[in-house]
């Protein structure tokens, strides 16, 4: 199984341009970048992919052991970089992917020239002297919420959809056709994401770093954005007018402008 198929890698833009890799967070797939990525295709070699277990990745490549920590997801990023021979890439990571990008850059600094973190959080659960925004009980509640919302995934339909990737109309009849994933994998990804603690890694990020912080983001509150900014030496923090956790969808123009100003 090639990495290109395994991670549903899509490469567009200028073949000789500087690489720009967009990575989705927990909850969806590379569709999250559909309003942002095209704006960079004139100047950059744009790379989109799905983590194993998300989107149209090869679910059979998922292993609970490999993906039991964010390092497993960072390995997906490094595998994609190696497959495409990327160096000096701009890595744009949304949500948990901001930390995944940081881990990947720490492991193989030569691959990356800059890191754009959209709504990052190094730890979601409150700790002594640290406000992450959530308690352990909140995360337990999220897992229950995931259990109640299989989002168009049913045992009967899944094989039909997975077995016919060339016939999307089979999936289109489902109520919520985007961001569909195996609920068991989603649950594990949620646990890995929200139980992670990467505060100690921040000071080791070896590349230029931009932090995009939204207003009223319940997932990654502004205090967390400031914490990330203060912990990564030389990083830039941009407080966006956009609200919520997904400026890549709700405010693509502002997101594009902030990334362009940085790179």
């Amino acid at each position: 199984m090639s990495v290109m198929v395994r991670n549903n890698v899509r490469v567009t833009g200028r073949p000789d341009g500087r690489p720009m890799v967009f990575a989705h967070g927990f909850g969806c797939d590379q569709n999250m970048w559909r309003l942002v990525a095209p704006a960079f295709e004139d100047d950059y070699r744009v790379v989109l992919f799905d983590y194993v277990g998300s989107g149209d990745s090869d679910l059979s490549a998922y292993s609970p052991e490999r993906y039991s920590s964010l390092q497993g997801y960072a390995q997906d990023v490094l595998d994609v970089c190696a497959e495409l021979g990327l160096t000096d890439a701009v890595f744009v990571g949304h949500s948990v992917s901001a930390m995944i990008g940081a881990l990947a850059a720490i492991r193989e600094p030569a691959r990356f020239g800059a890191l754009v973190m959209v709504g990052p959080s190094p730890r979601y659960i409150d700790d002594e002297g640290y406000v992450g925004g959530f308690s352990a009980a909140d995360i337990e509640e999220l897992l229950e919420s995931l259990d109640s919302n299989y989002l168009g995934w049913s045992g009967a339909m899944a094989p039909v959809i997975m077995g016919n990737p060339d016939r999307p109309e089979l999936g289109a009849e489902l109520t919520n056709s985007f961001c569909r994933t195996d609920p068991e994998i989603a649950r594990r990804f949620a646990t890995v994401t929200f139980m992670s603690d990467n505060r100690a890694d921040l000071s080791r990020v070896p590349v230029r770093c931009l932090i995009l912080q939204c207003a009223q983001d319940v997932i990654a509150p502004v205090e967390v954005g400031r914490f990330v900014h203060e912990s990564i030496p030389g990083s830039e923090l941009v407080l966006m007018r956009a609200t919520g956790h997904c400026p890549n969808l709700s405010a693509p123009g502002e997101t594009i402008a902030a990334i362009k100003a940085f790179v």
């Binding site: 969806c28 999250m32 919420s145 985007f178 929200f194 956790h245």
Partner: peptide
């Protein structure tokens, strides 16, 4: 929303709504 559902809202519901303009049968 309850806190767990709030995370679900931000990570699933909002993106879905932005992409397909309609979301149905979300349990919170």
């Amino acid at each position: 929303l309850a806190v767990g559902d709030r995370i679900f809202y931000e990570t699933h519901f909002s993106p879905l709504l932005a992409m397909q303009s309609v979301v149905r049968e979300i349990a919170v």
